[in-house]
Structures are given as C-alpha cells and as structure tokens.
Design a binder for these strands. Structure first.
Lengths: 95, 95
DNA sequence: CCCTTGTGTTTGAAACTCCGAATCATGATG
DNA sequence: CATCATGATTCGGAGTTTCAAACACAAGGG
C-alpha cells in the first residue's frame, strides 16, 4: 500500500540543500530573499512550500520549481488520504 | 517556451466531469459532500483544489487525487513563474 | 398576475496558512 | 561579564478555503 508517512519537504531542503553546502538558516534565508522566520518555519514543518518559494528554491539551488511543489503536494495529499474513509462522498462513476 | 496560460482546474472539472454526465452544480456539490458555494467558487476559479477536495473528486469520479492536485500545482506554479524575474534571490549553486 | 421552486452566484463570518517585524533563548567570542 | 550571532517563537496583517444565509434569475402552476 506504500503508506509510508512522508517527511515534510522542509526536512528535504535541509538535508539536500543547506547541509551539503554548510549553509546556516540565516545565510540561506538571506539568499532566498525571505526572513529567517519564514525559512525556519518551513524547515521545521510548520509551513509548506508555497509556489513562490518553490521558484525561489529553483533559482538559488538550480533545481526545478516543479519538483519542490510536487513534493509539497504529495506531502499534503498523504495527510488528506488519511481522511478518505471519513469523507461523505457519493460515487458518480463506477469504480 | 510553452508559456501558455493554463486554465484554472475548475474549468477542467466542469468540462471533464460535470458536462459529460449532465450534472448540475447542485447535484455535483451534493455528491461531493460540499456546499454549492464551495463548488461554484472552484468552477469559477475563485478557489483552488484543496488536497481534501482532490480526494473527494477521486472518489466521486473514480480518478486519481494526485492528478487533480498536480493540475492545481501547475496552475499556481505558472502564476508564480511570472514573477521569477522580480524575485530577489541569490544563486547558491552554479547554473 | 403572483407565488413557489430550482438554479448558480455573491455576501458575511470563521478557521487556517504564509509572511515580516520584533522578541526571546541559547551559545560562542572577546 | 558583555556582546553578538543564530535559530525559534509571539504578534499582527494579508490572503484563502469553507459554510450558512441571502441574492438574482428563470420556469411553471394556481
């Protein structure tokens, strides 16, 4: 079922972008053009990756904005899927 | 560059789900378990597809929640990309 | 003609999220 | 001890998703 609880994208940013370059939160936030608080919240999973933030990440780290946004989507979707059984929805098309 | 302004996902829902089945906004909203207002806002592009709504759509129309959420992401990303040049971001990795 | 019913949309309010400025707590340096 | 940098937290503002209620509009029935 592949029901593995995915890590929040901020964890990925830290491990994949900040740590390898030895960047502090302050340095990275400054480069990204956002406040330390904003980046800190993302790294600690208290904020998601907004579309604008995805573009910022893509510029600073030469990656694809789409991949960051998709990771965020997958993370949010996993949590929404946990509620699938509780949603009162009527099927309109045969399974 | 494929810079085609993408339609908001609500338009897709209407054309791909409601219209083929001859469903009214009222009927579809009722089946999805949300208010008419909520669905109306989505169809008219004044609201996005939330993760929970993506799961609702996947149940009612036997589709993948991921595809709906990805369409929403792509739509938001396109708008964010329009601001790419205005963002004050410093490259941390060589292009 | 008026009244009811059904349609889609809009208004008003509550809850939530992302963000910056300011503040706090911690640890290092002089 | 005092100072400073770092990361996290609190406070407030702006935007978004949601519902309940009310709105405008059309189509029929009395």
């Amino acid at each position: 079922m592949l029901m593995h609880n995915p890590p929040h994208p901020g964890e990925i940013i830290k491990e994949l972008c900040l740590d390898p370059l030895g960047l502090s939160v302050t340095e990275a936030a400054d480069a990204l053009g956002v406040s330390r608080k904003t980046l800190s919240a993302i790294l600690n999973g208290r904020a998601g990756i907004s579309p604008e933030m995805a573009v910022r990440l893509s510029i600073a780290f030469d990656t694809s904005a789409e991949s960051w946004l998709n990771q965020q989507s997958q993370y949010e979707l996993w949590h929404a899927e946990q509620l699938r059984g509780q949603l009162q929805v009527r099927k309109l098309v045969a399974a």
